[in-house]
Design a protein around this nucleic acid. Structure first.
Length: 289
DNA sequence: CTGCAGGCCGGCG
DNA sequence: CGCCGGCCTGCA
């Protein structure tokens, strides 16, 4: 069980296992965390920010109350889930996965706000990570609420209304290119019919995916990323070029179309396919497959 | 200068 | 229907 300690404005969670802050924040599931000079990270989620540092089994939230850690960040980092058990189940009778989990034993799937995740992955399509971060930062600076934390100013990710009504396509301020139109239209639809991760959870996985795909700029991969990285369904298995290569090379042994890779992933990993995707993705990048 | 980055859309066969 | 070329932008 985790022990939460509060001292001199910091909140510390002790006895954390199967968790690595760096690989969790740098595996490409989130775009608003930056590494500082020290080993700490500063991140913005919705309208709040945190500076976090990991010291082995301790996770320190700088200038943050235990109340905020308990009510928000604990869930966000998915600290209530037993990843040791997940890795054990995935590794059983699977030598490939046994190897893969060792490359990123502390990775976790964040539970991120739905609208922010949806827009972020629309931006991610055919884009590079530095560019994605720039665009999201610009959207927030232009149309997000300003707030302060730890003596600095930050900008919340904008709400659907702000993006739907903002002149986000006319000016070249966000550098989102042709994705501007997708963002604006998606924001408009989202504002008309708001949706939460809990709504998606209440549906069947396929139903949730189909629903998300109705938003412009959302195809199979973006829909799966949104479902997985908002913590809605953990069988979502986003297939990008890396995952395609690693699945073909290690499991399927032949060229396979994208949709079929998704199906095979469910056959192999079932409701834990999403976790498997994270380990395999990390493995592929580390080994430059 | 060309190619490409964690895809999606639309038009064509 | 499934396939495939084009695409904002920044960077190597």
């Amino acid at each position: 069980m985790h022990k939460v300690i509060y001292s001199s404005k910091d909140t510390v969670i002790e006895n954390i296992t199967d968790f690595d802050l760096g690989s969790t924040l740098e595996c490409g599931q989130c775009f608003r965390w930056d590494k500082n000079d020290d080993n700490d990270y500063t991140g913005i989620v919705s309208g709040r920010a945190a500076r976090v540092i990991q010291q082995e089994g301790r996770l320190v939230f700088k200038n943050t109350t235990p109340d905020e850690v308990n009510s928000f960040w604990y869930q966000y980092f998915d600290l209530g889930t037993d990843y040791g058990r997940i890795k054990e189940i995935l590794s059983k009778d699977d030598p490939i996965m046994t190897d893969a989990v060792l490359f990123a034993p502390g990775i976790r799937i964040l539970r991120q706000p739905l609208f922010e995740t949806l827009v972020s992955f629309i931006v991610s399509a055919n884009n590079s990570i530095p560019n994605i971060k720039r665009v999201i930062s610009a959207l927030s600076r232009m149309w997000g609420e300003e707030f302060r934390y730890d003596g600095k100013t930050y900008f919340a990710f904008p709400g659907a209304k702000a993006l739907a009504e903002g002149e986000i396509c006319d000016l070249q301020l966000t550098k989102a290119g042709y994705r501007c139109d997708y963002i604006k239209r998606t924001a408009g639809m989202f504002f008309e019919n708001p949706l939460t991760a809990n709504d998606l959870k209440a549906m069947d996985y396929h139903e949730a995916k189909e629903l998300l795909r109705r938003f412009p700029g959302v195809g199979a991969k973006v829909a799966d990323c949104t479902i997985l990285f908002s913590g809605s369904h953990f069988r979502a298995f986003p297939v990008d070029v890396w995952i395609k290569k690693v699945m073909e090379q290690l499991y399927l042994k032949e060229e396979t179309p994208l949709q079929k890779i998704s199906d095979k992933a469910y056959d192999l990993f079932g409701n834990m396919a999403g976790y498997a995707q994270q380990y395999l993705f990390h493995y592929a990048r580390m080994n430059r497959i």
